[in-house]
Design a protein around this nucleic acid. Structure first.
Lengths: 203, 203, 203, 203
DNA sequence: AATGAATGAGTTTTCATTCAT
DNA sequence: AATGAATGAAAACTCATTCAT
């Protein structure tokens, strides 16, 4: 008469959810398949039916992160909008992503593994970051070509710009600092844009 | 007649060395006292004679980091030198510390633990970071009082300045990027100083 | 195709049996889960699947003792039988329980733990003993009310009566003396009953 | 400059004292030479200089018990005093010994080991008990020869008499019950003597 | 005689994974 | 697909004992 137990796809989701919480709270090594299965209200063997190892379970979560990021961080240079407006948009997109609690948690999870160099997921987080830089680099390059910015090394500027944002909105949070509130977000955006304009804008 | 076996202080050092490597490679949870003792060529019980738990062993290493940092990151505002020169010095000190492989390794070790929120070493790394910011904030405040910089929130500027440096010289390395070479170091210093001057210098 | 290996309930029984022997031979502290699992022909982890700690395993055994005792030591005062007959019955019940080798072993196991004051099982053995005394006290009280025995403190008499029996049939055995044979049992019963009658019977 | 550390014989005593406490609190298996040496404020190696093993240390303590008992439990039948007076004396000696906290503690320590059948000290406690019984048996035999008591099996009576006393003053205490106070002691003595007289005194 | 340091063997317990049903 | 039960391997930590000084 065991009712109320999710089946199939529901079980899969329950496992992923439980695992995310568990990995976030205890890291990869600190988490146990036993606890995960209990939290998901599912037998341990069922976990193994869905994910063939702890590593694969972890990777599934990591890829959720990448997908989520890829979807939210898309933009292209356009002549139709001012440099100021476009820079503001880019900064906003970045910050929006980084001020969602769930995203930071996912990043923390993956970061631990990445730093531990367990090989798992290393490429993954690199990819996320490079997507980020590449996209921004392209934007700066085109702004340069369009004669709006005075730039010699677009990738350096891209890293500088993104770096400034992350310096306030990401790295501290990685170490447990609280997410930025609206006002702080706006200030960071404003200051980052100002910096680029002040240093590189063609007058 | 067992000769050639290091005694006492030497064993302690051997253990610390082995543990540093082990923690670096596998993180706190991933490392085992068994492996550490073997790498140090010492019995497991000896490790426990010197450090009464895995946690204490880890903390001993973590405190080495803090000491090392505290000693190398000291400076004060002076009217005798130009803003430019002083900013260059601060940036250089920061980067010098961050381009020593051993320091980055120690930071990585502590970072994992910090993110895992194992409570161990949480305060420690916070302290290191806050020392850093406080010292720089003070410097900016005094430069402001001295009428050289046009500033409203010194702490924000301090974080912006240190953040810029770390964006190139620390966070990527935390994720496994190679340490900066001399040329790159100089460029980062130059650009960070330029940014501050360009935004806040009183002309 | 591993056949012939007992499953489930059989394993549980095998573990309990092995543990009983082990605890009996070496006491709680002296026994190891390793040895127990080997004796039960079961992996150590299996032992832990069935009993979540050494302590719980021990308690399971201890409670078997209590149940066994509670079931065998029940009686009530009745006017339909003579004092002599009833006292004989009580003594016999007590002695019957104490001349079963398995019972003495269980008591020995629990006794060690009790004396070591490990808290485990302390209450348990107290309960067993108090059941014993309470039941007998009640009997004496009713015999007194019925005008058959001349008694001022029924609990003292109960302890005296049970104490006499145990002095021969329990305490020496606790220290390794052999169980009483039939003849000895009868003599102890006879003498204990005689003592009560001689001291308290209303003539 | 380490002062205040006892030397030589003092160290020996300190070790014995610490060990007694430790064995009492945790039993033989539960105690560790490490803790004992620390409690005695002495190095572990020093403990081994005085007692070549944990077992020997334990035995030294056990023999203290035997000596103490032998010295306090001596008496002989005499025609010069009444049966009543002599029985009272015997019971008193027994109870006096059993109402000294230290003695009970020593007995508890040895009992655990005895029950665990670690072989250590088995003979020892048997000896103590047999001394006890033998001495009392002799007394009863002579009282019988002297025509004062009507007895067929002096050893049985001796066990009955001593058993009655122990039933109140020893076994419960072995299990943690509080020592008897003066009034209780007197009552037990009185009732035990009464029992013997009532059953076996020649009128 | 005394000790600080060292150690091999052992302790309880947990884990990722497999297997029979 | 789902599960209860089983397990080998490894984890952190402790212990009685030895040895060089």
């Amino acid at each position: 008469m065991k009712r109320n137990r999710p089946l199939n796809e529901e079980k899969r989701k329950a496992i992923l959810k439980a695992a995310t919480v568990e990995f976030y709270e205890k890291g990869f090594e600190g988490s146990s398949m036993d606890t995960i299965s209990k939290k998901a209200n599912v037998s341990k063997a069922t976990v193994y039916n869905h994910f063939k190892s702890k590593e694969e379970l972890f990777l599934s979560i990591a890829y959720m992160l990448k997908d989520r990021f890829s979807q939210s961080f898309r933009f292209e240079y356009t002549k139709d909008k001012s440099i100021d407006e476009q820079l503001n948009n880019i900064a906003k997109k970045e910050i929006d992503f980084l001020t969602v609690k769930e995203n930071i948690e996912l990043i923390q999870i993956v970061t631990i593994v990445l730093i531990q160099k367990n090989e798992i997921g290393v490429k993954l987080l690199e990819e996320v970051n490079e997507d980020n830089i590449t996209m921004t680099t392209n934007w700066f390059e085109q702004a340069h070509k369009d004669g709006k910015l005075n730039i010699d090394d677009s990738e350096f500027i891209a890293r500088q710009f993104i770096g400034m944002i992350k310096a306030f909105a990401f790295y501290p949070q990685l170490y447990g600092a609280p997410l930025l509130d609206k006002k702080e977000q706006e200030r960071v955006i404003k200051k980052s844009v100002e910096m680029v304009k002040s240093l590189y804008l063609v007058k």
